[in-house]
């Protein structure tokens, strides 16, 4: 069953036509990856879904509810979380405050406590860094904090924008293991990546985006075998 359906969306930045009729869907429990090069429209697709940018035409449905052009602070209340490109943690806030911001809409203290504990299960390092300013952590730790912060919203769909960006291969490995673990625990994941091999190897399905259009889609392991993909992204 599809939990997220994107239907022919067109998004513009001023005069630039960034997304040209993107259509994709994500089923409950899947890892779906959107791969492509710089400037292809990967981040814009996520931003269009979460409501950070407005789409000009087309529709986006989440759990059969139309969320096209709903502002970000409302879409995130429905059960989706978006971990932005470059992690974007609040650098002057402590790790704890960053996590608490993830649970901004939660009123009950005990619910917040429960969720923080769950975040510690995935990222034990954060527990040791609670009172440290977010901006003083390493890139990998910041990425963990960014994902942890998103988990504080207890989303059904987690959208990750290039979690591997700028990280050492060993850290990337670690992050992808956690993404896989999250998925096995029931989380639906939409993963945007430039690191096509890593992304496709954990994904159920993948889409390839080029100049704002989906040019190819299919099962994760089929795409890895695909010659075009090999040439363009896995060389």
């Amino acid at each position: 069953m599809s939990i997220l359906e994107i239907d022919h969306i067109n998004t513009y930045y001023g005069g630039i036509h960034a997304l040209r009729g993107i259509t994709l869907d994500v089923n409950q429990g899947e890892i779906v990856t959107l791969i492509g090069s710089n400037g292809a429209g990967k981040s814009t697709t996520l931003k269009s879904v979460s409501g950070l940018v407005k789409v000009k035409s087309g529709s986006i449905k989440f759990k059969n509810q139309d969320i096209t052009n709903k502002p970000a602070h409302e879409t995130t209340l429905l059960g989706m979380a978006h971990v932005p490109e470059g992690r974007r943690i609040f650098s002057n806030l402590t790790v704890k405050e960053n996590l608490l911001m993830g649970a901004f809409s939660v009123k009950k203290k005990n619910v917040i406590e429960e969720r923080i504990e769950r975040v510690y299960d995935y990222f034990p390092i954060l527990k040791e860094r609670l009172n440290q300013k977010g901006g003083t952590m390493s890139g990998g730790e910041q990425q963990m904090l960014a994902i942890g912060r998103a988990l504080m919203m207890k989303p059904e769909v987690l959208m990750l924008d290039e979690p591997s960006m700028g990280l050492a291969p060993i850290i990337v490995e670690k992050i992808f293991n956690i993404i896989d673990q999250l998925n096995q625990d029931g989380m639906t994941i939409l993963l945007v990546e430039q690191n096509a091999y890593q992304a496709l190897s954990i994904a159920n399905r993948g889409y390839v985006i080029q100049n704002g259009e989906i040019v190819l889609s299919g099962k994760g392991h089929d795409l890895i075998e695909n010659d075009e993909i090999r040439e363009a992204y896995l060389a």
Partner: peptide, 20 residues
């Protein structure tokens, strides 16, 4: 805290369900 978050990064604050 939300105020500080918004002043640091408005878009990301919005992704935390904060009405900017």
């Amino acid at each position: 805290t939300a105020m500080r978050a918004v002043s640091l990064d408005r878009d990301t604050a919005a992704l935390m369900s904060i009405n900017v």
